[in-house]
C-alpha cells in the first residue's frame, strides 16, 4: 500500500497564500506531481496548480508518450485562463499578466507490472524526482547541486488577455525516464528541497522521513544550507 507524506510551505516571512509551489497526488491511481511557479511571472501559483491538477485529476497519463505534454499544457491553460478575472485586474497586474505565467513541473506515475511496479517520470525544470536506492541517491532530471540555477526550464501558460484562450502552444523542454522497481522510497520536490537533499545526502534523506519538517527547514535556512524559498515535497513509500 502506498503511503505519502506531504509538505509545502511558503518562503519564511511570506503568507501561505503567497506560496507558488503546488503538490497533489492520487495514491490509488499512483499519480503524483509537484510544480513550482516562477516568481518572476504573475499568477504563477495559479499556473502551477493548474498544471498539477490537470494531470492528477484527469485521465492524462505519463505513459502516453506522444501526446502527454501538449494535452497537459492545453488543459492547464484552459483552467489558468478561466480562473483569472482579466477584466478586473489593476493597471500593473494587467500589464504584467499579458506575458503569461511560468512553472516547473515534475510528475511520477506507476502501474502494476506483475511482481514489480513500472514507473515513469516526466519533468520540466528543476523540480526533481529523487530515489533512495539501497543507500544510493538517484536524482532526475538534475543530479548535482551546481545544476540548480536561477534560470530553470519552464512551462509557459501562453499569453494572457487580451489574447484569447486559444493559443499557439510552445512545446516545453521536457525530460522523461522509466524504471521498474519492487520497492518504493521516492521523493518529488521543488528546487530548494531537491538541491538540499542532493547536497546533504544521506543525512538529508533520514531527516526528511520524519521529524518536524518546518523546524528542520527553518534551521537549515538560517544556517544557509537551504535557500529561503517556497518549499515542497512528497515522500512516497510502501507500507
Amino acid at each position: 500500500m502506498i503511503r505519502v507524506r506531504e509538505f509545502t510551505a511558503p518562503k519564511l516571512g511570506n503568507k501561505p497564500e503567497e506560496n507558488e509551489d503546488y503538490l497533489l497526488f492520487d495514491s490509488g491511481r499512483m499519480k503524483f506531481a509537484v510544480a513550482d511557479g516562477a516568481s518572476d511571472s504573475i499568477f504563477s501559483g495559479v499556473w502551477a496548480r493548474a498544471l498539477v491538477e490537470s494531470y492528477v485529476q484527469s485521465n492524462l497519463s505519463l505513459f502516453d508518450d506522444g501526446a502527454f505534454i501538449e494535452q497537459l499544457v492545453r488543459t492547464a491553460r484552459d483552467r489558468w485562463y478561466e480562473e483569472i478575472k482579466w477584466d478586473q485586474l489593476k493597471l500593473f497586474v494587467k500589464n504584467k499578466a499579458i506575458n503569461g505565467s511560468f512553472s516547473t513541473f515534475t510528475a511520477l506515475e506507476g502501474r502494476d507490472s506483475g511482481d514489480a511496479i513500472e514507473f515513469r517520470v516526466v519533468s520540466v525544470g528543476d523540480s526533481c524526482f529523487l530515489r533512495n536506492d539501497n543507500g544510493a541517491l538517484d536524482s532526475f532530471p538534475l543530479s548535482r547541486p551546481e545544476d540548480f540555477n536561477i534560470s530553470p526550464k519552464l512551462i509557459w501558460s501562453g499569453y494572457g488577455s487580451p489574447f484569447s484562450k486559444e493559443f499557439k502552444w510552445r512545446k516545453p523542454d521536457f525530460k522523461s525516464m522509466s524504471f521498474t522497481s519492487a520497492s518504493v522510497d521516492f521523493v518529488l520536490a521543488t528546487d530548494s528541497v531537491s538541491k538540499w537533499i542532493i547536497e546533504y545526502y544521506p543525512e538529508s534523506w533520514d531527516h526528511i522521513i520524519d521529524g518536524n519538517t518546518l523546524e528542520l527547514f527553518s534551521g537549515e535556512i538560517s544556517m544557509k544550507k537551504m535557500r529561503n524559498d517556497d518549499l515542497t515535497f512528497l515522500h512516497i513509500t510502501t507500507t
Binding site: I42, G45, F92, V93
Partner: peptide
C-alpha cells in the same frame, strides 16, 4: 514601470 513590473504579484505591487 519596469521596477513596478518586477514587484507586481497576482495580488498587487
Amino acid at each position: 514601470n519596469e521596477l513596478l513590473n518586477r514587484c507586481t504579484k497576482s495580488e498587487g505591487v
